[in-house]
Amino acid sequence: MIHHIVFDMGNVLVDYRPMEYTQRFFSDPAEATLVCRELFDGPEWPLLDEGKIEPEVALAQVCGRLPKNLQERAKELFHHWFDQLTIIPETNELGQRLKQKGYSLYILSNAAYSFHQYAHKIPLFPLLNGYIVSADEKLVKPNGAIYQLLCKRYQLEPEECFFIDDRAENVEAARQCGMYAYQYQSDVQALYSALQRAGVNI
Results as ranks from 00 to 15, higher is better:
D8I: 04
Y21H: 10
I88V: 12
V35K: 07
C161K: 02
D15K: 08
I5F: 12
R37Q: 14
Q84I: 05
Q176L: 11
A198H: 02
A145I: 01
I53R: 10
H4Q: 14
S109Y: 10
L195F: 01
F7T: 05
A135E: 04
S109I: 06
P46I: 01
H120C: 11
R175G: 06
D15Q: 09
R153I: 00
L128F: 02
H3C: 03
Y21T: 05
D83T: 12
D8F: 05
R65G: 01
D166K: 00
Y182E: 00
V12K: 05
T22Y: 07
V14S: 05
Y184F: 15
R197Y: 01
K138Q: 04
L77P: 13
I2K: 04
P126N: 07
K75H: 08
R65Y: 01
R24N: 14
D41P: 14
E137V: 11
Q96H: 08
Y113D: 15
V35S: 12
I87E: 02
V140H: 09
Y180H: 10
R175L: 01
A145P: 04
K141G: 03
S134N: 07
L127D: 11
D15T: 06
I164D: 00
A58N: 10
A112P: 15
G51F: 14
L139Q: 11
I107T: 03
P89R: 10
L48W: 13
N92L: 13
Y154A: 01
K101A: 14
D8H: 05
F25V: 12
M9R: 12
A135M: 03
Y106P: 12
L47K: 15
A32W: 09
Q189H: 10
G130W: 03
Y131P: 09
I2M: 07
S114C: 15
S186N: 14
V171N: 06
C161G: 03
L70E: 05
D28H: 03
D187R: 09
N129F: 03
W81S: 13
